[in-house]
Design a protein around this nucleic acid. Structure first.
Lengths: 264, 264
DNA sequence: ATGTATTGGTTCATTATTCAAACCATTGGT
DNA sequence: ACCAATGGTTTGAATAATGAACCAATACAT
């Protein structure tokens, strides 16, 4: 493992629950030498990727990250590509719609939109989505490479009693998603929430997923049909906006899924 | 210079004008060995900080940056702290207001707001602001540490014929800003634009600057007074939102600046 | 077509960094 | 005063980074 990779790995320990991390915590979390950890943190800090809270001396994400993110969003818009499709998806289905982005360490929620129709809507609070336990994760895995699958298998905590717990269960769910072009997860991440997701593509391949999180008790066969139809429509639009191409196998699966609706 | 610092330095070569950079270009820009450069780029890529354009093989900012930026903005809001103050500043002065953030490599525009009153308003197009040639830069330098000043002196290109060209000129401008609490730059970056700026603070110290970019021909003594009063008001609000404390010397300078207005 | 320059990417002795286990100074709690 | 944390520094043995040359593929001119 390269020095740079080790330093970059430190960034992955941050989360919304743990936005500041001290030297000793890093040393334990990364299971790496304290002196080295300190040097890495210092290097990242002087580059502006990290900064130290002067009160606690703990490290947190630095301002340089905002500069880089701004640049990426201007030259390669992602949020802009969701602006129309996501609200429309929420509106058409009456449920919460969200889109997430795939990077080296998993899925992160990029944007979400709640439908105004129902009072009991699903509120998203977690910004990192586990690959093995969410519809979005399964959808991404179904069209991602083997490396992504390896990462998913590496950590498979159970969130509910229907969360896939064995690699075989996961493989089966992924195979279903690959065949149908969409992933459906019944309360695998949170009880009372059924997730529907489709993969998103940019010019590099799988780039994320778009999903509908519905209140399970409200999901009828009719609603499910609506959701899947609208989901595929949204996925097509967003992938087009992101400059991605839909793999032929997926295009075929989506055509089949839409057929029952459009057939005379 | 550490390996990590070298790798991080590569990120600084990106800009809005140059959002994608190939291996050979990096090798020349960074004046570093090609093999080393390649390894650094590969490491950054596998961490998600960079990604390769599959068509050109050139590197660009990767998706992990968005994840990190999102986390920082949620736990340590910066844009949110501007939401009220910046439009109010633009409204009250009738000119374009913008705020910029300081990081290891300079100032970056974070947000800007245009006043609707005039048709001939100043449109900002550059997101990186040179420290030596903008009011924002001078304001930041006036209350930043010696290290920041060193960086400013390192590169001082002339943008107009009133741009400070010698370190002495720069030092004089900074001294004026330190004494008055605001920086005024008359067409030092772009002809026809006069800049007014005040420093912004967060808990770590100087964190950026808030500025008004006015059409030079429109600047009367009355407008200038209005701008300075409103600018100081906005700077106080934003720094408070960012959890910063105004250094006593600056607080005194601002009190003096406001005095001519409030005196009976 | 052939030579030439340029691209992204790879190999292998030399050189610099990282490792581990100490240590120091400060802080907060008992 | 003590103990257990914290952030930060130092030491020779292990491990990784480095740079010059090298390779294969593409682009471009003669």
């Amino acid at each position: 493992m390269s020095t740079i990779a080790k330093a970059m790995e430190l960034l992955d320990f941050f989360s919304l629950d743990r936005p500041e991390i001290g030297l000793s915590d890093f040393h334990r979390l990364a299971r790496r030498d304290k002196a080295t950890t300190f040097r890495h943190l210092s290097a990242l800090e002087s580059a502006g990727l990290l900064e130290q809270n002067p009160a606690t001396r703990a490290y947190r994400i630095g301002p340089a990250v905002l500069r880089l993110a701004h640049m990426r969003e201007v030259t390669l818009p992602r949020r802009a590509g969701l602006r129309v499709a996501l609200p429309r998806l929420a509106e058409a289905t009456g449920e919460t719609a969200h889109a997430s982005l795939l990077d080296a360490s998993g899925l992160t929620t990029l944007a979400h939109h709640e439908a105004p129709q129902h009072s009991a809507r699903v509120v998203l609070h977690e910004s990192r989505l586990p690959l093995h336990a969410t519809a979005s994760g399964i959808a991404a895995l179904a069209f991602g490479d083997e490396d992504l699958m390896k990462r998913a298998r590496a950590a498979m905590p159970a969130f509910t009693d229907t969360t896939a717990r064995s690699p075989e269960d996961l493989q089966a769910a992924v195979a279903r998603a690959r065949a149908s072009g969409v992933a459906i997860s019944n309360q695998t991440f949170e009880t009372g929430v059924t997730g529907f997701a489709a993969p998103l593509f940019d010019s590099t391949g799988v780039a994320g997923a778009v999903a509908v999180a519905a209140v399970s008790s409200r999901v009828t066969p009719e609603l499910q049909t609506t959701i899947l139809t609208e989901l595929i429509k949204a996925a097509r639009t967003i992938s087009a906006n992101w400059g991605g191409t839909i793999p032929p196998a997926l295009a075929a699966a989506w055509a089949d899924a839409a057929a029952p609706e459009t057939a005379p």
